[in-house]
Design a protein around this nucleic acid. Sequence first.
DNA 1: CGGTTAATTGATGTGGGTCAAAAGCAGTGG
DNA 2: CCACTGCTTTTGACCCACATCAATTAACCG
Lengths: 217, 217
Amino acid sequence: MFRRSALYAQDEGNWQHFRAAEPESTLLARGDLHDQVFVLCAGWAFQYIQLSDGGRQILKFLLPGDVFSSASIFEAASHLSVKALTGVRIGGFARSEIREKCRTDPEAQSEIARIFVVEARDTAEFLCMLGRCSGEQRIAHLILHLVRRIAARHEITGQRYPFPLKQQHIADTVGLTSVHVSRVLSDLRGRGMISLSGGSIEILDLLALEQLGSVVL
Amino acid sequence: MFRRSALYAQDEGNWQHFRAAEPESTLLARGDLHDQVFVLCAGWAFQYIQLSDGGRQILKFLLPGDVFSSASIFEAASHLSVKALTGVRIGGFARSEIREKCRTDPEAQSEIARIFVVEARDTAEFLCMLGRCSGEQRIAHLILHLVRRIAARHEITGQRYPFPLKQQHIADTVGLTSVHVSRVLSDLRGRGMISLSGGSIEILDLLALEQLGSVVL
DNA sequence: CGGTTAATTGATGTGGGTCAAAAGCAGTGG
DNA sequence: CCACTGCTTTTGACCCACATCAATTAACCG
């Protein structure tokens, strides 16, 4: 998101934070107050909400360029937590600086707008998946969604892409058990749709996967 | 949302639209282009996405003061549809006018920010419900969420509030069948938690309902 | 009061959960 | 090189929340 944006394109001297973190470390905790807006610079991370029953719901996976939480652009308090999935590097802007930039720079303003619009669209689609679709469809959709973001402008098919999620992460995202995720994945493998192992994935039958994972008209 | 806001507090001469509509009429359809940002002035409506399998996922119920779609503040195209639940009155601002206002009025700016922050928080919570909770919990949560919004600053308990949703609407929101919604509702009634009939609701046992509907730590 | 839509109730089926054991698969150290 | 340990994934047996189908009943309305 911020990758090629007006905000991102400053030299490093402007970053207020620029640090690294280990996989599984918590980067941001629900309720924390920060006057910074954090951005993922390298690696994978995910937003989630911790539930009282011990489970967690993963809301979104973060790729380099993504803001930790879009709401953090406007608010110091975070309603969600963020964890590193792989090793990561993190940057941060002062919120005040962003506000200032927005006042003067229409480019930055529409970059913020883009972030919120994309988030609203993605979240709505995600809600549809959770509300109305089978486990198979949800997983197909998640895989497609992620691979499309990783692949960016490259071909989706005929190419292995990094895929650092454990099955538990998938489960916590699509609202299934890791046990069931395992079954669905091996089914998708068995039907020759994906090849997933060792932290990387290849889409073998894009069409079939899209037929599964597309619900919105 | 817009009710007491800087944007809302203009006299009617500034509204570009101000019209009424029947229950069940479509107020905004996915893909439509509008240079207006619509606001619900009176009645109930809901955002939804139509699915290819014939079902629909309701994303949010709109009360007076709510913008049809927060993304519409920034974008002409809508990724979701809106239908009237009861009879409604609708207002609209020119998007350009809002942009202008934001440039000059910090009040309006932070009103927009509030809309997006609240939306992000609510949607995240909703995702948790759909991903991780039982039908009973989802319904309890939905009821609480709505009654809290209707009641605003009034007491939630000891008071009947309008509740125009059919069971099908509840089902399309929480991802269940209307049949199952019926069973869950009569169970909640049987346990003395709610009294729901004839388009209005009363919360009889707030504590019990909150215990059911609260999942986030 | 008949006609239509919404809500309820019952019987039966299934996707996915739960529990538990086994099998892969690193890393670690002797 | 192999045994030891701690994950993650896989597999199997069994169970339950919720879907589906179908028939009633209740509410609404001209």
